[in-house]
Structures are given as structure tokens and as C-alpha cells.
Design a protein around this nucleic acid. Structure first.
Lengths: 157, 157
DNA sequence: GCAGCACTACTCGGATATGAAGTGTCCGAGTACTAAAGG
DNA sequence: CCTTTAGTACTCGGACACTTCATATCCGAGTAGTGCTGC
């Protein structure tokens, strides 16, 4: 899985803790975790295209969350970064070679693809059932001082 | 996800339909679906290392299932081909940069990694709950003639 | 005729090329602020 | 003093290199069969 997913998730949480009144530049978000700024910018662009964050150009520009955390699921972020295609893609090799199934275009779905798809559906469902707000809540329970520390760093610099 | 997973799953089912009295070469299995033989051989080697199939060198050599289908789960095959590492790997970026959490080595798990891990666990559980025998059963229900066709092709050539 | 043995043919196994995709970087398009100039 | 306007600095957005991993291939190690040789 793409490493940008992790960066995007952390950045979204950071954006939420900072507060939405002011846009935050990709360079700031990157500096906070010592990430390559231009590449994080690329990931944030993907989030922007997916409507998860909104972007503003120019001075005082940057990114901010497009909607509250409880309306952003993990699935949204993963899809925005990784793309919508399934991890297991059936190439229908049963139709190739001397053993090609003679069935027509209305053939039932490949049983293997069905089984793998069932597992992937469970994964997607688990991702869609968790919002970023759930994650934030657990993170704050683990580190109550984090939100203030983050807000202060982004405000002070 | 690696394309070899699909090939490995189909090959395992084919091996089961052929029957275990005779080993089948990688070239034969590949020809049946017009796959590159040497590369399929590589995937079968991975299955062999995982103990899913057993391999025999030399003339009359080849591969055969090491245990019945109902003792092989989808998880086994995926792990054999893709490796045991998780798809989402947390790089602990929360520890990097000016906002590094000051916690010691006994810090709780990153909330983001926990949430992603929960989804991945659902995926792995769904894979582990399905055996290749379940898949075979469904495949035969869809295409009752397939087993005989496969057995005949591999025997006749 | 039979046992032993060297040889050949065949297959797996891992080491070796190739290509695509993820990773990282750079420059142009666009915008808000600044400041100077004119009325 | 206020308005207008040109300029400037800053940021996103997409186009351009580089690195890593999946894909594909090839050759050596090892084995079973085969046929020949010698007894």
C-alpha cells in the first residue's frame, strides 16, 4: 500500500487539531513530521480532487478540511490516494488457453474472484465504518496533550 | 496485489481436479492458461516453500498438493505469494519532526495504525475463513463440466 | 541372461535482465498583499 | 487623504527524473529413466 496514505491520514488529523479558520500550507504540514514537502503536496492534491480537503492558492493559501472529521471515513482517504480499483483484479485467465471455459458473455463470476472479492469487501466495509473522528477520539485518549502541542506549534511558527 | 496470487489459486484448484497420483509440471499448468511457464514456476516455488504444494525434480517430476483442499485457506496462498508483512505499514512519522511525541518506548500503538490494522484484520479473517475446497465447490456448481474437462486435457496430452 | 554403470533427458531452483509503478523534485499558473503614483 | 494600479512574493498544480519492486527470463543442480557394457 502507498505510503502516502499514512501521511494523508496524519495530515487530516493535524488539520482538524489546528482548526479550520486558517489554511495550512503543505510545507508546514510536511515540516511537522519531516516529510518531503513537494511529495506531501502531491498527496494533498489527491485529497483535494476527492473533495476531502479544499485548497487555496497564493499567499495565505494552503489546505483545510472540506468537511468535519466525522464525515470522513478511512475508506474515503484510502480511495483518494490509492485509487478506486480493487487490490485483487481478476484477469479471467480461465478464459485463456486450451481449457478456456466455453461459456458465453453471461457467464457467472469466477469463483476465485468472488471469494477474494468477499474478503476485500470486508476490508472496505471495516474502513468505511471508521471515521477520522473515531480515530481522533482514540488518539486524544492516548495522548491528551497532543492537540494543544500541535495547535501551538502551528500557531507559533 | 501480486498477479501471481490469481495464478497460484487457479493452479491449486487445477491440481486438485487432476488428482494427486501424478506430479504435474509447471509448464503444463502454465500452458493450460497460456501463462509464462518460468514465472508460474516461481510462484509454485513460493507455494512449495510454504508447504502448500510439494515439488519433485527430474523426469516425472512436478508439483502436487501437499494436503487436501479443505486444509488450504485463501490466507495461506496469499501469505505464501505476497509475504507475511502487512499492507499498511506504520512508519511512525508521529515520532519525527518538531512535533515528535515525547513518549518513551512503552508508548501505545499509533491510533491510525490501529484503525488501519483493524480493517486489515477483517480482511485476513475473511481470507482465513475460506478454504480452497469452498471455492472448488462453488466453481463446480457454476460449471459442472469443468473438472472432467481439465482432467481429460491433462491426461491426454 | 543379468547386474552394474555411464549417459541422456527432463524438471525444479535460484540468479539474472527488463519494465512499470511508486517516490521524489522542479517550474509555471494563479492569487493576495504591498506600495507607489495620481487625483 | 483616498483610489487605482503595477509589482512582488507566495502557494498550489501538474510536468519531469529517479528508485524500487513486480514481471519475465535463463542457466545450473539434481534425478529418473535408458541403453550399453561386462560378467
Amino acid at each position: 500500500m502507498n505510503e502516502g496514505v499514512e501521511w494523508a491520514l496524519h495530515s487530516c488529523l493535524n488539520l482538524a487539531w489546528i482548526g479550520g479558520e486558517r489554511a495550512v500550507t503543505a510545507a508546514r504540514l510536511a515540516a511537522y513530521h519531516e516529510l518531503p514537502a513537494a511529495y506531501l503536496n502531491k498527496q494533498l492534491q489527491a485529497l483535494s480532487r476527492a473533495g476531502i480537503v479544499s485548497s487555496v492558492s497564493g499567499p495565505k493559501g494552503g489546505f483545510r478540511l472540506a468537511r468535519p472529521l466525522d464525515r470522513i471515513t478511512l475508506m474515503d482517504v484510502v480511495t483518494a490516494i490509492e485509487g478506486p480499483e480493487e487490490a485483487f483484479r481478476c484477469t479471467e485467465i480461465r478464459r485463456q488457453g486450451p481449457g478456456a471455459a466455453p461459456a458465453g458473455p453471461d457467464a457467472p463470476r469466477c469463483a476465485i474472484a468472488g471469494a477474494m472479492g468477499k474478503a476485500e469487501l470486508a476490508w472496505r466495509r471495516a474502513l468505511a465504518d471508521q471515521t477520522l473522528d473515531d480515530v481522533r477520539e482514540r488518539a486524544e485518549a492516548q495522548a491528551p496533550g497532543a492537540p494543544d502541542r500541535i495547535r501551538r506549534w502551528f500557531a507559533g511558527m
